[in-house]
Amino acid sequence: MAKAFEGAGLRYLHLVDLDGAKAGRYVNGPVLERICTQTSLQVDTGGGIKTEADLRLAFESGAAQVNIGSLAVKDRETLLGWLARYGGEKIILSADVRDRQIAVAGWQEQTRVEVTDFIRGYMAAGIRTAVVTDIAKDGMLTGSSVGLYTDLLQALPGLDLVASGGVSSLAELDTLQAAGLGGAIIGKAIYEGRISPEDLGRWAAEKSEGRGEQSEREDA
């Protein structure tokens, strides 16, 4: 699949280690390494990254960036240490939200942490990019939470915000780009045939030649 994305002219891949998320450690390093050595895709990955050994494994396997979610809520000091050592450009803050409050542990644990405050606190420590998933939208193909994203961008100037959840058409990507988002994660819409990799590749090429490039991160 990664080679198909590359062949369609796409440049970015969002790779989730679901096995690692269940195991509580990053386990799909060999898969990541094959993708990174056999394609030119820039890969960001997450799922099960709980220790610095997990983090190093992801980077050594070829990841350009890693996504940190639950650990950012449960162990702030560890993530602050990683940011100091690896830099904010290497770590993406992942925020899964329900009613604008953070949920963790595969969405099973709801916190009272408000998403704007959560991201702001880590931007002060060097985070540049955040992926925000609206749990109510994820996998539903009913459209993105543009209102949520617009509010976040207004409250958090300088944030590179990536949308996740609900994207079902190229027209929605136009809307997200116009709202100021830096990218969007697209998964189910591709696998169910709503958006083809080829059409997405052409869309991305047109945008990079025109108003500026938006990161269309395919979800695998």
Rank of each mutant, 00 (worst) to 15 (best):
residue 67 N to A: 08
residue 211 R to G: 15
residue 33 E to K: 15
residue 3 K to F: 12
residue 152 L to W: 06
residue 18 L to R: 11
residue 85 R to P: 06
residue 16 V to R: 08
residue 1 M to W: 05
residue 99 D to E: 11
residue 209 E to S: 15
residue 32 L to C: 09
residue 151 D to M: 14
residue 49 I to Y: 10
residue 53 A to V: 09
residue 205 A to F: 10
residue 176 L to P: 04
residue 182 G to D: 09
residue 125 A to D: 11
residue 190 I to E: 00
residue 145 S to H: 08
residue 179 A to H: 07
residue 87 G to T: 13
residue 189 A to V: 06
residue 155 A to V: 10
residue 126 G to Y: 06
residue 214 Q to C: 06
residue 133 T to F: 09
residue 188 K to V: 04
residue 77 E to L: 10
residue 95 A to V: 14
residue 53 A to G: 05
residue 220 A to N: 07
residue 179 A to I: 12
residue 124 A to R: 12
residue 46 G to V: 04
residue 21 A to L: 11
residue 83 L to V: 03
residue 18 L to W: 11
residue 13 L to T: 01
residue 156 L to A: 12
residue 149 Y to A: 09
residue 126 G to D: 07
residue 130 A to H: 07
residue 29 G to P: 02
residue 37 T to E: 12
residue 198 E to Y: 11
residue 138 D to I: 01
residue 1 M to H: 12
residue 52 E to F: 15
residue 125 A to L: 11
residue 112 R to E: 15
residue 1 M to P: 10
residue 95 A to F: 05
residue 57 L to G: 08
residue 110 Q to A: 15
residue 46 G to D: 01
residue 14 H to K: 02
residue 186 I to G: 05
residue 183 G to H: 06
residue 50 K to A: 13
residue 1 M to R: 07
residue 131 V to S: 00
residue 107 W to T: 01
residue 59 F to D: 02
residue 159 L to Q: 02
residue 10 L to E: 00
residue 14 H to G: 08
